[in-house]
């Protein structure tokens, strides 16, 4: 697939992918980057931090500080109830989209 087109698609999906990663439990930004690192959605702090802060403003995520043995305290993120609803809605929407795309590719049934 054309890299530019799939890139735009991935960019739009990143927010939902992050929701899915954070849904696994309390997670630190570096773990999110690592989890995405070997997928199509590999990203960097420069992109992730502004996104996390916007998602927090939209009350999809929340974080709490936690001391770390090495270095400064870290922000651990988790989903809010709104975030969980958004993720469930997205998953349902994604399934309906893939079904639709599959159906659009097959010739319509003749009556």
């Amino acid at each position: 697939m054309d890299a530019g087109k799939s890139g735009a698609l991935r960019k739009g999906l990143l927010e939902f992918v992050v929701l899915a990663v954070v849904s696994s439990g309390r997670i630190y930004a570096a773990d999110i980057l690592q989890r995405l690192g070997d997928t199509e959605f590999a990203t960097k702090e420069g992109t992730l931090y502004p996104l996390l802060s916007r998602m927090r403003r939209e009350r999809l995520l929340e974080y709490e500080w936690q001391e770390s043995e090495a270095g400064p305290p870290r922000k651990y993120y988790r989903l809010t109830p709104d975030g969980r609803r958004q993720l469930a809605a997205f998953r349902a929407y994604w399934k309906s989209l893939t079904r639709l795309i599959d159906e659009l590719g097959t010739p319509p049934c003749k009556p």
Partner: peptide, 8 residues
């Protein structure tokens, strides 16, 4: 490694 800031 940290990457250019993308305001999204």
């Amino acid at each position: 490694q940290v990457g250019t800031v993308d305001p999204g």
